[in-house]
Design a protein around this nucleic acid. Structure first.
Lengths: 198, 198
DNA sequence: CGATTCTTTGAAAACAGTCAATCTGTGTGG
DNA sequence: CCACACAGATTGACTGTTTTCAAAGAATCG
């Protein structure tokens, strides 16, 4: 089970960017020059907790997760990054401090990496890129707000329904215990909820 | 119980801004020209759910809350804005859509309002202002992440400890049922936790 | 003070977590 | 290709935590 053909991976990012802003062919060339193709097999890491994140990763294919591991070994998934999402610890990238999070691949995946410094440079050189990235951060912020609302307001069952709605199809692709972890409940609880729902 | 002297309210914002970026006296004058002094008494609203948010509000004094009301009349506090925080629904401000949230004063408060359009203009005209605002949004995003982590990983007691740590002193100022609402638990549960802790 | 708002307490019920066993599918190496 | 190991999902019985409902006690404000 390999990621399919290696070739037109940058096209996924180009298409994504063009859907968000008016990039010229030249802009895209500059961006492409800064990207690095990185296939990641299932269970391989993009970032280990304790390391400093050096890359912004755009997921062209597959799915990654960002998570912590607590004292008892329990994993808590902060977020998922399927195709057309960005992976990386913004905090570590911005501060240069070691990350609290692990990031690894849930499925065989293909990423486009942009080095921290190149990313900063691109934002300075290309105003379109900068404003698109700002918009993305913004949407991420709004999404966090929605998730906080769900976490403090909803029952386990409502959280799961909301998840199905927010990530259509994702629940079918990824292991259930990860969905449970993302929602802040145990696998068993999620299993029983799913049972009730059908 | 009135907000004290009316006079040097803008100074609070000026001081705040100067601590975050290199503003010239002229920059500050421009910003001041766009601000509107708005005292808010306890329980008065800055924004009603269903309305479009027209103002960015800087809290010079007091404390506001942003919250939703569910079908059963339960309130869920999304966040608190004490002195030197911003209040306002970013989503509504950015999109022009009606807000899902209510924002009101928990204490008698003093706000400096900046109209939506003026805010956008200031960001365009003053690069310092723009980058400071970006940094603030950024920190807000990081804080959301931390809060999500707490919400899905911690027990009720751990959440309360974390709250005390994150908002030192705030638990003493605001009603406990609001802290409970913010943490996603009932007043009774929080009361019992506090009892255990002492 | 009287009224309202807020907090505490108790008992019962609902809910989610834990532990352990079983069941299922998938991939690997022989 | 089969057998086995392994990761993942389900189920049941039990425990523990949190909610709910109801009532009573503080504290605050006008």
């Amino acid at each position: 089970m390999h990621p399919p053909h290696p070739a037109p991976t940058f096209d996924v990012l180009a298409k994504y960017l063009l859907s968000k802003g008016d990039f010229t062919a030249d802009d895209l060339r500059h961006i492409q020059a800064a990207t690095l193709l990185r296939p990641l097999r299932k269970r391989q890491y993009l970032l280990h907790a304790g390391d400093v994140d050096m890359y912004h990763g755009f997921v062209a294919q597959g799915c990654l997760r960002t998570y912590t591991v607590d004292a008892k070994g329990g994993e808590h998934i902060i977020y998922f990054a399927p195709e057309n999402w960005w992976a990386g610890d913004q905090e570590s990238l911005a501060s240069g401090q070691p990350s609290r999070y692990n990031i690894d691949a849930i499925e065989d995946s293909t990423l486009l990496l942009i080095k921290r410094d190149d990313f900063v440079r691109l934002r300075q050189e290309l105003p379109v890129f900068n404003s698109v990235i700002n918009a993305i951060l913004y949407r991420g912020f709004m999404a966090s707000q929605t998730r906080i609302h769900a976490a403090i307001s909803y029952s386990a069952e409502e959280k799961y329904r909301e998840f199905l709605h927010h990530f259509p199809g994702l629940a079918l692709r990824i292991p259930q215990h990860m969905v449970a972890s993302y929602l802040g409940m145990t696998t068993e609880t999620l299993s029983r909820i799913r049972n009730r729902l059908k």
